[in-house]
Structure formats: C-alpha cells, structure tokens
Write a protein that binds this DNA or RNA. Structure first.
Lengths: 206, 206
DNA sequence: GTACGATTCAAACGCTTGTTTGACCGCTCT
DNA sequence: AGAGCGGTCAAACAAGCGTTTGAATCGTAC
C-alpha cells in the first residue's frame, strides 16, 4: 500500500488515514492498518503508544499544514488595499481543495475530517478545538470586518453552513460523480469555484 | 431509557438511534444498545436478524416519514400559482428541522444521518439511494424549473452544498452553541430561517 | 568484534464483539 | 388440561479487539 522507502511511522499513518476514511475510527482495526502498511502489529503501540494517539497524529500531520496554508492565504488576501470577500473565502476553501488533491492520501483525509465532525467524542473534539480553533476565529474576524452589517450570530451560522458544505462536497458524499472525461483535479477545481460563488452570494444575502 | 409501554422492538430502535449517534455504528455495541433498552441481548437478533439490519431499520423508521413530509411540502409549494424558491427550499429544510425537534430521538437521528454520509459503506449507501433517491430527484427537478438559467451541473453542486450545510448544522457539529435563554426549539427554528435565507441567495447567485 | 540502543517480530494477554443455542415463560385456542 | 407458539432469557460460541511481552534483529559507535 505504501512504497517501502517510507518509514514505518509514515506507512502506518498513511494506511491508518485510508482505513479510517473507509471504515471509521472504531471500524478500522489496528490489524487491518498494520497489514495494509506492511508492518508488525506491535509497531503502532511502539511508535504511537495507543490507537487514540495514532488517531490524533493522523489529524496533526494534515491539519498543521492545512491551517498554515489557510492562514498564509488569509494574510495574503488581507494585505490587499481592499480585501475582497471571495479572496478570503478562497483562502479558506482552496487549501482544503489542494489537500484533497494531494496524491498521498489527502482525499482520504477529507473523509476522515468529515468523520471527525460526526464523532461527538469529547477527547477528539477538544483536541481539534484546542489545536485549530484559532484558525476559525481568525477567519470569522476577517469576515466580520468585510461584512460589518451582519450581526455576529448570523455570521457564525453562515460560516457553519459553509464549513458543512465544504466538508460534504470535498469528501464527495453527494450524488455528484465526476464525469469520465474530467480529471480528478479539474473536477475539484470546479467544485471550489462553484462553492466560492455559492458562498459569496450566501454571505452577502440581505 | 425508554418507557416500558413501548414494545421491545421500539425500545431497541430508540436506544440504537441514541447510541449510534453518540458512538457510531461500529462504536456502539449490541450489549450497550440492549442494556440501554432494558432488553435481553438476544432480542436484537431475534427481532432484526442482525446488527446490519437493525441499522437499516433505524434509518427506515425516520426516513419514511421525513421524506413523506418533504414530498407533501414540495407538492404544496408547487401547487401555488407561481411557486417561490424559498418555499421549495423550506419544503426540503423544514421537515428535517421538525424531525430534529422530535422528542423521541429525532435530534439523535440527525446525527446518525450525518454519520451515514461519512460512512462510505457500500451496503448502506445503496440502501439509502435505492429507498430515498427519488426524493432528491424530485427536488432537483423542482429547483431546475424555478432556476431555468442554471445549468444542471451547477444546480446539482448547489443542492449538494445545501445538503451538507443542513446536515452539518442540524447535527450541531459546529461552534454554534445555543444561548442559555433560547429554547432548543427556538434555536432550531432560527437555524432553519438562517439556512433558508443563506441558501436562497446561494441558489440565485449569478 | 563487540557492546548497545532502537526497532521489529511472533506470540500471547484479557476482554469485548456479534451471533447462536436450548431451556423457559405466558398466552391463546381446542 | 394440554398443545402450540411468539417471545424472553442466561449462557456459551468462535472470532476479533487493543495492548503487552520478551526474544530476535538491526545499525552504529567504540
């Protein structure tokens, strides 16, 4: 499943990501993961300590980069003379799109992320909010400045809707199937363009 | 967990719904379910045959009514002289809202539904698409007639975004917490109003 | 070459899983 | 009264789970 030149840790993370996406955290066993990674069963506990820690590490690996890119793109959008709403939106959406295009499992990770939202597991939620909550707050502040007429409650609702739409469509839950001719990349690029247009209009409503 | 005047089958369905919402399909064991339902362990296999069948039955029970209400509301909206976009949207969104207000576990069911989207389990997806796919198609047709300038691809994308936003917000994954004073019902009613306004603007973009 | 820490390995640990079994209960019908 | 039957029950089943163990192996520094 993973080329042999990757380290044991990396092979485990890659296989775990794929299998968590496919079967869920409880549904994918360490035996499946280690078999897919071509690694001894005990390696997970040796390198990560426990299955729970492995799950956290799967998130950390991707989210660190995703959020760094989001914040970079946000700052780039905000340094313009008059920041445009769709650029701020793009700073939120496009890095997620790029990640889901990553050849080494980014697409699987978007599905894992969708599962994380569905898990009301307290430990996992706290981990995500502790480590990555500030990104959402930064974006909310930026949107707030661009849409000063919107009261805070309405703004938060709309950002929540956008998050749901992004996760849902990037993990391609829906009925949208890529046409045979369109490459995976073109498909997702088009999805981002559609989502940005949709979200800009939604944010500016009223 | 369930009043004793409910039948064994109903008690199992109610407990399963709650626990599947909380821990996922693989994460909630039949022993947890039967204990919460105050029922013998073997009752699940006796009444439902298997855990998989129980999962399907949890969906069927709620989705049958949800989709019937959606189609009723859709037809009501379409019989008007000139159907309004927000009424068709309301026909899609409000029944889900009402279900999530149901006192006997509807809220839990919305979380189960969100999990179902995250499950890429082939069996479950086929079941959902076979049994309830026609509802989505009817709504898509209605929206298509109301938004004739929108090409089909764009329309399907936008409906997918709305589905994602609805599921995400109804299962309250996001940061939106209900204020202390607002009742649960008022909270969700406001969510529906916000979502409809957001979605109408998004659908009418360009 | 040999000693040593880091890594891998097969095997086993105790426990939980979904499912099955066969006895037993409470009811209705003759 | 007793046969039949849908339902419940405690108990057991094999299989799979996450984790631990102790020995084998590796690469490197001396």
């Amino acid at each position: 499943m993973n080329a042999p030149h990757f380290s044991t840790k990396e092979r485990i993370l890659g296989a775990a990501e794929t299998l968590f996406a496919r079967h869920g955290f409880a549904g994918a066993s360490l035996r499946q993961v280690t078999a897919a990674a071509n690694v001894n069963l005990a390696a997970v506990n040796y390198h990560f300590g426990s299955k729970d820690n492995l799950i956290e590490e799967v998130f950390r690996r991707r989210l660190d980069e995703l959020n760094a890119r989001r914040l970079d793109a946000l700052n780039a959008a905000l340094t313009a003379d008059s920041p445009r709403l769709e650029d701020v939106l793009g700073a939120f959406i496009r890095p997620a799109l790029e990640l889901s295009l990553d050849e080494t499992g980014g697409h699987a990770f978007m599905r894992v992320l969708a599962r994380a939202y569905a898990e009301h597991d307290e430990r996992l939620r706290k981990f995500l909010s502790d480590n990555y909550g500030h990104v959402l707050r930064d974006f909310a502040a930026a949107f707030g400045r661009l849409l000063p007429h919107l009261d805070k409650e309405e703004l938060y609702w709309r950002l929540d809707f956008i998050t749901g739409a992004l996760t849902h469509s990037m993990a391609d839950f829906g009925p949208m199937k890529r046409r045979g001719q369109v490459t995976e990349e073109a498909h997702r690029e088009r999805a981002a363009a559609h989502l940005i247009r949709f979200a800009v209009a939604g944010l500016m409503a009223d």
